[in-house]
Design a protein around this nucleic acid. Structure first.
Length: 283
DNA sequence: AAGTAGTCCTGAGTGC
DNA sequence: TGCACTCAGGACTACT
């Protein structure tokens, strides 16, 4: 469920509770999520300091003092709930245990971080920090859309000759890492490109034009998530979702928001996923 | 090789 | 109120 901006928002929300802090105790309430947890995960994490909490694509990576890295993936329905930080960043009390609380991190600073994931498409894994780049979930990922390796020439070359619809190509994590269904729909809307268009048949000037648009869509969403973080004193500490308004996603049958367009948002299914787009102005 | 279904799971929403 | 059905933001595997 969470795409790059949501995962980045979760990471930022976790920083004060986890980065630089020792894991005092772990609760692991089941043997697996999507895959089995790593061997002796709780033992291997207990006593480790999280030296750095970073993000690659939709994965959160916690580099540990002992030389291993914990990978956390939220899947479709994963959330992190932060509570009980003595520094007062998170003022809410520890919530009662909920259904689907699968893993709980008890931090040495008093913070508690609960991983809750009803659908269990999430995952955790442990690897040596040195081998993180070659981990099977990370090795084939394309460039970070907000990083320097994602630029006009790259995208033009990556899409050249592709017969699949642009929608599918942008969802392909090997081409760009971190985009999901929502932000692909939103980026294509802003670019005025139909999701049905074959990736390799779009003029290179239009492909190049998508680069700053993709960046802006993600940055806008991260900014919206950041503003939701400011409300933590009133909020319940849940990280993973935030209110955000979309131009096309989920707006089937409603009016296009582009000035002067007057078109209607339609929905089609591509590779089993819903694509929302303006039938009038996305060509 | 590239592109597309099927699959894992639970919960929310809808229609009868 | 209950039941059946559809759909969901991810990503791997197995097909054509």
């Amino acid at each position: 469920m969470p795409e790059l901006p949501e995962v980045e928002t979760v990471r930022r929300g976790l920083l004060p509770a986890m980065e630089g802090v020792v894991i005092a105790r772990m609760e692991v309430n089941r043997p697996d999520l999507r895959w089995p947890f790593p061997e002796r995960m709780a033992d291997r994490l207990t006593g480790q300091r999280i030296e750095r909490l970073r993000r690659r694509s939709k994965y959160i990576l916690a580099d540990l003092s002992g030389g291993e890295t914990l990978l956390i993936h939220l899947g479709m329905s994963g959330r992190m709930i932060v509570s009980g930080d003595p520094l007062g960043v998170f003022v809410h009390d520890h919530p009662a245990a909920q259904k689907h609380d699968h893993v709980v991190f008890h931090m040495e600073n008093g913070a508690r971080v609960t991983f809750n994931d009803p659908r269990r498409f999430g995952a955790m894994d442990l690897m040596t920090t040195a081998e993180a780049d070659t981990h099977k979930l990370l090795a084939a990922l394309g460039p970070e859309p907000l990083g320097n390796d994602f630029h006009e020439d790259y995208l033009v070359a990556a899409l050249a000759g592709r017969g699949s619809p642009i929608k599918s190509a942008l969802l392909d994590q090997r081409i760009i890492a971190g985009l999901g269904n929502i932000y692909v729909c939103e980026a294509l809307f802003r670019a005025g490109i139909s999701p049905r268009r074959k990736a390799g048949r779009i003029a290179s000037t239009r492909v190049a034009g998508m680069v700053p648009i993709i960046r802006k869509v993600l940055q806008d969403a991260i900014a919206a998530g950041g503003s939701s973080l400011k409300d933590f004193r009133q909020a319940d500490g849940e990280l993973g979702y935030f209110q955000h308004s979309f131009d096309v996603y989920g707006r089937e049958g409603e009016g296009c928001r582009r000035d002067g367009c007057g078109g209607t948002i339609g929905r089609i299914v591509q590779s089993g996923r819903s694509s929302f787009y303006c039938l009038q102005c996305q060509r």
